[in-house]
Design a protein around this nucleic acid. Structure first.
Lengths: 336, 336
DNA sequence: GTGAAAGCGCTAACAA
DNA sequence: TTGTTAGCGCTTTCAC
């Protein structure tokens, strides 16, 4: 049952574990171990099918070659894709990734943070919930590599990768305005998180650019913790009570999905009776009938940058924080 | 930088690390440690903000309270949801989950298996690729808890959780037949994996039940490793060259998605010109226009069962293999 | 060139 | 009721 350890090899070859360790770590030359001995050890390791015990190694070196990725919800396609790209990039550098979902719940996020910290993750890629500033701060103070993704805490000196949410929303609304829509609704989350406030700000200023004023009543702020049916219901009610509206803007993918469901329920025709645009792309928006215009984020780039930053921090041991703001892209489709 | 260890607490309180360890592990009573001492230790731990080092604990106990989940592709909604449910269930039992994607690539799967094994995962939940029988076998021989999900190796005595793929496909075709469709195409993967062969078998026998014979030429077998656009292209060509067909059956979600794209490209109307049914549900099928009939798998149940089995194996140390076959559900929608 | 030994943080026989 | 000590598998300093 016990797997072969460095000790077994040492015994087999008749040397000390030290020598074996040196050879296995490629320090044979440096330590001027004879070629024959080196080969013998290597062959024995091979023959016994030796695999180093990462737990023990991690304990000793403090390095586990593992990154922690804390997302909001791994089943959300945005995060699922992000996870995949992070995994791909990390893999190239020989790192593994451990994922967890916070459900946007501070308590859960904090306990995950503690947990991963004590599983000796070498670095953290985090989609932060709003209430974990303090914990992030203390991670950084412990000089643990951290990079925030999708959102960040303004004023805090932590690395992050995000998109220009303001510009994305602004441009999305400009598309609607250019198409002649005049009475545009906003459906967003009731959230203080910067990515959401920026999208709302972009929306409002874009409307303002056309000389109009967006009335607060024309915005629906949904609680994060609603169930999916509750969201749909709330959107149905909101749309019903704003019958004159000719367009609606959703600030994130699952709101957009719930919105599609609501519109279908109301039997409204897109785009004749109501135009639709949403943040984040997905199969439904891309292939549904009609196809839905979106403000799409460069998810692969985001993941790539995040890993790049983390690896840089790990390798350089630099505490310097790096910030990347990528460009979202408005994709015009049939829904406008 | 160094976090507080059990030693710090011992020093602070003025006792040995053993005592602290006992108290922290809730063995105070068992070891008949005085209440005052216990409280003092607990308070000190709290005050110093002590968190146990899981790596060290894992090294000592051989238990990491971590499960490895090896999926085909975490960005595929089926696996993303599965991952989420597995995570939820594991969490309830105090276990964390480490995810990895194999990309359905044997080599990658094998290296992941080695990797996770040596990171001392307490158990493995695996969506196996077809070529890793041997490695699964050796995991089992080492008495490591393993459960296969979605597919399994017939004839191998390993736990698994799957759905009745044969019945799902059979029932799906029955729906099409009942609606009067006569010329039904099959689009599936060129795969030896049991879930796929069973779906194909269910399809063919279901057609046969109506007295018809499904011609091999009416099946499109796609390579797994095609890119998405290549898949779409292949399906476009297949559908174009089978113009008399009135329905098409897709054996998995991303084939269905690619199929929707192909049908859209061909400007065929669903269901008037072609009816559609696919294995696995998703937002596009549920909310697209028209909505698409599916054979949906009880993903939450699958994840729950898988975790249940793994935990049972871990706790009972029983090598007995358990098999669950859950029922998929045909959901009739507008596409038929 | 190679080995002895200490130590990462924790647990658990065994001793006292 | 509490402490001593060995050891999980590995790396690395120092000694020979």
């Amino acid at each position: 049952m016990r797997s072969v350890s460095i000790k077994d090899i040492a015994q087999e070859v008749g040397v000390s574990t030290t020598t074996v360790s040196f050879v296995l770590n490629g320090k044979a030359k440096e330590k001027r171990i004879s070629n024959e001995l080196r080969d013998k050890i290597l062959k024995t390791a091979e023959r016994l099918n030796y695999r180093p015990n990462q737990v023990a190694r991690g304990l000793r070196t403090g390095q586990t070659h593992t990154l922690g990725l804390i997302v909001e919800d791994i089943s959300n396609p945005f995060f699922a894709h992000l996870a995949r790209f992070v995994e791909d990039e990390a893999d190239k550098a020989g790192y593994k990734v451990m994922f967890c979902s916070t459900e946007n719940n501070d308590e859960k996020a904090i306990s995950l943070l503690y947990l991963l910290r004590h599983r000796q993750m070498d670095g953290f890629i985090i989609i932060p919930t709003s209430g974990i500033e303090k914990e992030i701060q203390s991670l950084a103070e412990e000089k643990r590599p951290v990079v925030l993704v999708d959102r960040y805490f303004p004023g805090m000196d932590i690395s992050y990768v995000t998109v220009d949410n303001y510009k994305g929303a602004y441009d999305g609304v400009q598309l609607l305005l250019a198409k002649g829509y005049k009475d545009i609704l906003l459906v967003t989350l009731d959230s203080e998180q910067v990515q959401m406030t920026e999208r709302e700000r972009g929306f409002i200023e874009s409307i303002a650019s056309s000389g109009k004023v967006h009335k607060p009543a024309d915005t629906l702020h949904l609680q994060y913790d609603l169930t999916h049916p509750e969201m749909v219901k709330a959107i149905v009610e909101f749309l019903s009570s704003h019958n004159t509206a000719d367009a609606v803007f959703f600030t994130t993918n699952y709101l957009g999905v719930a919105g599609m469901e609501a519109i279908r329920h109301l039997k409204k025709i897109i785009p004749e009776q109501i135009a639709v645009i949403s943040f984040d792309d997905n199969d439904l928006f891309r292939l549904g009938s009609p196809t839905i215009s979106v403000i799409s984020q460069p998810i692969r780039e985001i993941g790539k940058k995040a890993v790049e930053i983390i690896l840089h921090m790990i390798n350089s041991k630099s505490g310097e924080s790096l910030h990347y703001v990528l460009e979202p892209q408005v994709m015009e489709r049939e829904s406008v």
